[in-house]
Design a protein around this nucleic acid. Sequence first.
DNA 1: CCCGTTCTATGGTGATCACCATAGAACGCT
DNA 2: AGCGTTCTATGGTGATCACCATAGAACGGG
Lengths: 182, 182
Amino acid sequence: MPRPSDARSRFIDTAAVLFRQRGYHGVGLSEIIEAAQAPKGSFYHHFPGGKEELAGEAVRRAGRAIGRTLDQVFEQAPSFEAGALTLATMIAGWFEGSDWSAGCPVTTVLLDTTPASPALSVATREVFEDWITKVAGHAERLSAAGDPRERAIKLLVGLEGAWIVARTLRSAEPFRLAAAMA
Amino acid sequence: MPRPSDARSRFIDTAAVLFRQRGYHGVGLSEIIEAAQAPKGSFYHHFPGGKEELAGEAVRRAGRAIGRTLDQVFEQAPSFEAGALTLATMIAGWFEGSDWSAGCPVTTVLLDTTPASPALSVATREVFEDWITKVAGHAERLSAAGDPRERAIKLLVGLEGAWIVARTLRSAEPFRLAAAMA
DNA sequence: CCCGTTCTATGGTGATCACCATAGAACGCT
DNA sequence: AGCGTTCTATGGTGATCACCATAGAACGGG
């Protein structure tokens, strides 16, 4: 086997960035290929499934990255509430750093493709379920009040809502309020 | 002036439905025109600003409709909490009735166009601000605890988040939890 | 009745869409 | 060295994109 291609990886990361800014249909394949500085022809070698396969990989990779962050934050949090606030503050910081343009990598693809693309619907669902399971585990470990899964979904709902509202209001306040709610 | 055109109105309503399902870039103009059963040429007569102008009208009209619902619900609610629960239940019902495909009319356009289209960014922002102002007024009138505007944003964040998460989970639970949070 | 405005109707425009056929280059293996 | 696989590179494919030029139909007011 020749050298492992970093072109494939660049495709995924580039696509993730662009999809978060303008959604799945808002970004053309040619723009992704150009931004990834890869030849057009090698795209379909790495992604026989085309744009959908690429988006699926982007969603899963970004999902895993956030999942890791989520574990790190809650592992060193003194309480579930403190962890939720730290997480919300972190996301708000990244979001503001992107000038309120880098939306949730799952949501931005989800709204453009569900239920039109079953494969992508499954990918987004699995990422959300993974996050919920992880957070519920931390909620239970930190002996937070109430049902762990419900608390996890509450946090997810609050953060996703904040990610939407903050984009228009161009303010971190929704994240602060989301953390306070959950 | 000849008869007021109902074609223009059909364009707006048709576009609103389709944008909510698949986002701004996910729906082609030709599909909207065909679904509205209008000739292609009359579109640019009614909307010289093209697709963006149409989307702006769709967002504002849908925003006003939800704004009216919001007033109706809170005007006959015994408390802010009761109103929030009723509202969340209503939206969840509509959403499930569309087989979890009719997303928030603002969000679905917002994520596809902000900040690429300043005009649409303004439209989505104005609708959200209108909702917040309305809900804050009801919160104050019903003497809900805490800052009225903060409570309004909390409810908005919760509902928008629920609208996202419920789409993937295909369940009304996120709406129930959003109401409980706010 | 005729004019002027409003709206409908047809038929494209160039540009971009996602996708692919084909061939050569780069490398590991035997 | 020669083979087989992996990847790069080029150059399109038909389809759809948003948009528009042009002309006729439908209606009001004078």
